[in-house]
Nucleic acid binder design. Structure first.
Lengths: 198, 198
DNA sequence: TCAATACGCATACAGTGCGTATGTTATTTT
DNA sequence: AAAATAACATACGCACTGTATGCGTATTGA
């Protein structure tokens, strides 16, 4: 075994624990996931877990931070692929809905996370995500595309609509059929913010 | 002690347990609420609880059914106080937002409930609530007020927007100031469904 | 280079809470 | 009036979280 720096090994154990926790939380839910089991899955014990993350909630927080960062990156990519600012804004919402189709995101980010850690809009990365959406709306207001509403309020409502759409889709018998209906309704609803009638 | 019918006593026991559970779940959250504690608060033991509700989730389900019925009644009352069908529809959404200001509804209905029992849109009473909203939108489509969108999709998105608005308000420093902004943005957003430009 | 120390993690232990199995009493049923 | 059943209490086992302690190894200083 090559002698590596200690910091590297710490990062590796943290990564292993987070990965095991992601799959365990997604599969069984936060409450039903045993820390003995998931640490064993990672080839470690609970000692490593408490040393690195403090407690079970700390581990969940780390998992959520990681997923949230991934979601933020994917939303930015979706926005970048649009021609106009308004389409980019819509793409963000649609990307959010599509990501929420994934059971892992559903279970961890939309169900257990809020229940254990409280209102998601207070989470560090979520605020970053929300801030970019708010800024996008503000720009659309400034250039006359969108009516002069409170940008943050609009961003939160749009987010909520997308989130609920995602939950609906995931619980549906035919998710992809419902997805198209939800996306269509989402575009109509968002058009309410437009200065010109949709 | 007057000899009462057995069915009356069972109802009384169930009511006492549900009442104690409501306060306990609202105060401590579902996971942190001890069943020994809340049954003792009701002057009973866990035996009564397991006999009447099966398990802890069953008790939560009973609590949620009760609260959900109350919310449905209040939303119907709010709709009845409007002059037009459209205003009635908006009133429903605003009433939903306002109810979610209450910590009990926040904690139990919006945070713990979905995490423990799964997607709220599958709950019996919630579907009733959603159905009335869907029907309201369908009527507005039929009489030409609202664009021809999928009524259920629109209802779910509107619900989600209202829900997120409520969470935002509850976490705010000045809830009532944020409430007005949220309600204003909600009306703008909902106007996206209108056939005539908002 | 070698001792001292701090760090990362494992092990052992105590506390708490859920669910079930069993017991007890009062009300039906026959 | 005796048997049966429902409503609830009591007692027990099991699992899980969090903490305290122990051990090995890497890092630091002289």
């Amino acid at each position: 075994m090559v002698a590596r720096r200690r910091a590297e090994m710490v990062e590796e154990t943290r990564a292993k624990l987070i990965r095991a926790a992601r799959t365990a939380f997604a599969a069984k839910g936060y409450a039903a996931a045993s820390m003995d089991d998931l640490t064993a899955e990672a080839g470690l014990t609970r000692g490593a877990l408490y040393h690195n993350f403090g407690d079970k909630k700390g581990l969940l927080q780390a998992v959520i931070d990681q997923i949230d960062a991934e979601m933020l990156a994917r939303m930015r990519a979706a926005r970048g692929q649009a021609d106009t600012a308004w389409d980019g804004f819509l793409n963000e919402g649609v990307a959010y809905i599509e990501m929420s189709l994934e059971p892992e995101i559903q279970r961890i980010m939309l169900l257990d996370g809020p229940a254990v850690l409280g209102d998601p809009s207070q989470w560090p990365n979520q605020t970053a995500c929300l801030r970019t959406t708010t800024q996008a709306i503000q720009r659309l207001i400034d250039d006359g595309t969108v009516k002069p509403v409170d940008a943050e309020a609009a961003a939160r409502l749009i987010n909520g609509a997308a989130l609920n759409a995602a939950l609906w889709i995931a619980a549906a018998d035919d998710p992809h059929a419902v997805l198209t209906k939800a996306v269509e309704a989402f575009r109509q609803l968002a058009a309410g913010l437009l200065r010109t009638a949709g």
